[in-house]
C-alpha cells in the first residue's frame, strides 16, 4: 500500500468533515477488500487525472446524507430534497480538492473534474498497479464512507523524467 497516495485523502476527509460539521470525527473501519464494499446510498464520484490518476467516491446512506445536509443548512432537510445530493457532492469536492492541494505540494500535478453520481452498487477495484481501499469516518450525523482507487501515471512520470534529463 502506497500510503503517500492515500494519506492526503484521509487527512483531507478528516479535516473537511470536522470543519464543515463543526465536530470531532473518528476514522472507523479501513478495508482493502473491495468486494466487501457496497454503495450505501448517496454517492459522489470524482475523477482525478495527472501524475496520479484514479477515482474517489464519497458515500453515505440516505438518513446520514439528510442529517449532514440538515446540519450544514441549519434547517430540516428531508432525504428526498435535492439539496441532500448537492451537499454530498460539495463535500466530495472539498475533500478531493484539499487532498489534491496537499499532493500538489509534494510535486504531483493533477486535474479534477466536477463530481458526478456513482450509481453502481459496487465500489472501485484495485489491481496490480492500483491502490484501492474503503474507509469509514464516524461523525455525529452518521458514517461517511470514502472509496479510493489511485495509481501513479507511469507515462506522465516518464515524460517528466525525460524533460528533467534533457
Amino acid at each position: 500500500m502506497k500510503m503517500e497516495l492515500i494519506q492526503p485523502f484521509i487527512n483531507a476527509a478528516d479535516a473537511v468533515l470536522a470543519q464543515t460539521l463543526n465536530c470531532a470525527t473518528r476514522i472507523g473501519d479501513v478495508n482493502m477488500d473491495e468486494d466487501a464494499y457496497r454503495r450505501k446510498g448517496m454517492a459522489a464520484l470524482i475523477v482525478i487525472q495527472g501524475d496520479i490518476e484514479g477515482r474517489v467516491i464519497l458515500d453515505t446512506d440516505a438518513p446520514t446524507a439528510a442529517a449532514i445536509a440538515t446540519a450544514l443548512a441549519g434547517s430540516e432537510i428531508t432525504e428526498s430534497d435535492p439539496v441532500v445530493r448537492e451537499t454530498i457532492f460539495e463535500l466530495a469536492n472539498l475533500v478531493i480538492g484539499n487532498a489534491v492541494t496537499s499532493l500538489n505540494d509534494q510535486g504531483f500535478r493533477f486535474k479534477i473534474s466536477p463530481p458526478e453520481a456513482h450509481v453502481a452498487e459496487t465500489g472501485l477495484k484495485g489491481s496490480e498497479d492500483t491502490e484501492a481501499l474503503v474507509m469509514c469516518f464516524d461523525t455525529p450525523s452518521g458514517s461517511v464512507y470514502m472509496n479510493i482507487a489511485m495509481r501513479h501515471n507511469r507515462r506522465r512520470a516518464q515524460e517528466r523524467a525525460a524533460v528533467v534529463a534533457e
Partner: peptide, 27 residues
C-alpha cells in the same frame, strides 16, 4: 474560491486578473 488551492492554480488565477484566492471550506 476553490477547494483546489495549489500554487499553480492561484498564480494562474492572479495572472488572469483575479484579485485574491480563498480556499474552501470557506472560513
Amino acid at each position: 474560491v476553490s477547494s483546489v488551492g495549489y500554487q499553480e492554480n492561484i498564480v494562474a488565477a492572479l495572472q488572469k486578473g483575479a484579485r485574491h484566492f480563498v480556499q474552501k471550506p470557506v472560513k
